[in-house]
Design a protein around this nucleic acid. Structure first.
Lengths: 349, 349
DNA sequence: TTGTACGCGTTATCAC
DNA sequence: GTGATAACGCGTACAA
């Protein structure tokens, strides 16, 4: 296909028109074009029209890279680093962030760290080299002291879902411990004494907090903590299903299960699907269709979209120079009773 | 050149260290620092070490904005414009795009158009002003001729899920018509003669294609096309549920339903949840837990992550100068039989 | 109202 | 090996 040549006296070149080109074609100075482009007040009506016409003809578009270089650091971009955008928890956070960013005419870059500290650091370095104005991060790494210099230079950095390590920064967390405590207590109140828990990495902040909530609930109700009822590092669906089977065939099996994330919940429920044992179940994180399964699923729910919005709002407040002390927000959780968490203990036979 | 009034000594305060600062502190020239930073070959081992030490001390980070200004348009960023990142269909596309982009050390900006042409255009303009190197877009607008100039300047633009209007560009689509044809045929083969369809906007490309597939399947099997069995503009869950009830209470009701998207499927299934009528159902798009509902859901499935990957791969091929004719790819769909689509017709009583 | 000169932080060119 | 100088495309300060 031949590119269609348009009827201009300017040759259709392969290079992008600049303000200089526009100025030349309109017979004005570069600065005048700049004024028109940026809607500055003192420009003659006719000059403005002529310039705008040329801009349209040439298909000129302001180069925001050059602009932000000149203006300091106004790249009008912020970045979000999460674990995996395909996970609904993170995609809802991303949506919340983006909604706020659009109000400010900012773009958002989104990168998935895949829970890999090395990758995370590479991503963050790339982001900062591009001089984005702010960073929202769900950290995977275990040391964020390397961000201190960046913070001092004025780049707002906000941690979501997990706190920073070796760094003081704004942080927005879920009530992991309280939510889990609530879930376990709920099961205990329904008569359960042996409650299995299937989770991810127990050394990651959220994992540790949820484990702490589990232990606290047992302790406060005078129940024994039995490590043989716990399975960790089960973020992989296959491994979560294996864990489920292990617990079901435990010599003294649990009568209830608690899963610490949406992904794990789904895998566990799949494993339980063909089981005839009516085992009680509660999961951390709500998920679509939880209410429509044969046995509707009781969950600890929260609002990740809100989490993203509040994080972004805080970021923009800082970008606009508001002087706030370091913020530590906690998003509340809620027990949604649907049926699976209210089953009574039912011993195998 | 003479007056070097600034930066006599003093540790860095509020301003970001530049190569100039590093050069001064290391007692070398600007260019030498540049060589070290970019790992250029001809630098003395010792000089390199010294410079690197100063870089670490000062916390210097290359300014990629300035770099890309100088280098032409190497912003190392591409952009993805979709309808809503919180929708699993789009978040999986995004994941696929990002996986490929990471291999090339590119960042991805993601923006949600919310199916609004005006917003879409605003987003695209902002993206192009920032001199992003390539654009992947699920278009909402009905005229993309304004992108022709940008294309000629060499920016690869790839359309996903829907084709461009008034523009020739690479396009990656689903087999909407074929998938729908397959679903409807499947229902017909199971004895259905009256098949309801609940969809979104029938004038959007995907909607029109799916409707065409529906009509073709009916026609090829000698069945009458009855418009009273169709409901459109039901992307909103509430409205999809209303549509379901309308069809269930139709004087001569359908014995099977087809929903044209994941969102609509979920809403329809919720509406059917408390219905006692055993109506057959197939949905376009697979979704998590479809297999685990009381009546496992038969769907027309496809692979959005693959769609994102292939789009991104095509984009990078073009960025690297490969001269290909305009590509028109189609992602295949697959009928996944789970039970809901195999119910026989069951007349109300 | 409009134009000139310079600087933003980096890389390319071409000397030394 | 290393360094001086000129771009890149735009905005700021100030002059005309």
């Amino acid at each position: 296909m031949e590119p269609k040549v348009e009827s201009t006296d300017m040759p259709v070149s392969k290079s992008r028109p600049t303000m200089q080109d526009v100025a030349f074609a309109a017979g004005v100075s570069l600065k005048t074009v700049s004024r028109v482009v940026n809607n500055e007040p003192r420009v003659d009506k006719q000059t403005k029209e002529r310039v705008n016409k040329v801009i349209a003809e040439l298909g000129f578009r302001r180069n925001d890279i050059a602009r932000s270089l000149r203006q300091g650091q106004a790249s009008s971009m912020i970045s979000l680093v999460i674990e995996d955008i395909a996970n609904p928890f993170y995609s809802h956070i991303a949506r919340g962030v983006e909604m706020v960013a659009q109000q400010y005419n900012y773009m958002v870059t989104i990168s998935s760290s895949e829970e890999n500290p090395v990758r995370e650091r590479g991503l963050v370095n790339g982001i900062l080299r591009r001089r984005v104005e702010g960073l929202l991060i769900v950290p995977a790494g275990h040391d964020h002291s390397y961000l201190a210099a960046e913070q001092r230079l004025g780049t707002p950095i906000i941690f979501l879902d997990r706190p920073p390590v070796n760094l003081v920064a704004d942080t927005i967390l879920l009530d992991n411990r309280g939510g889990t405590y609530r879930a376990i207590t709920h099961l205990i109140e329904h008569g359960h004494r042996r409650i299995g828990m299937i989770g991810g990495n127990p050394f990651v902040f959220t994992g540790a907090e949820r484990l702490a909530g589990y232990r606290a609930a047992l302790h406060d109700h005078g129940l024994l903590f039995d490590p043989s009822l716990l399975r960790f590092d089960r973020d992989d669906p296959k491994r979560a299903q294996e864990a489920t089977h292990e617990l079901l065939t435990h010599p003294d099996p649990p009568t209830a299960l608690f899963a610490t994330s949406n992904r794990i919940s789904v895998a566990v429920l799949q494993a339980l699907h063909h089981s005839t044992q009516g085992i009680a179940f509660i999961g951390f994180d709500d998920f679509e269709l939880a209410a429509m399964l044969p046995l509707p699923v009781t969950v600890i729910a929260h609002n990740p979209l809100d989490m993203g919005q509040r994080a972004a709002e805080l970021l923009f407040a800082r970008l606009q120079g508001e002087e706030l002390p370091t913020q530590n927000l906690t998003i509340p959780t809620e027990l949604i009773i649907r049926g699976s968490g209210e089953l009574p203990p039912c011993h195998k036979e």
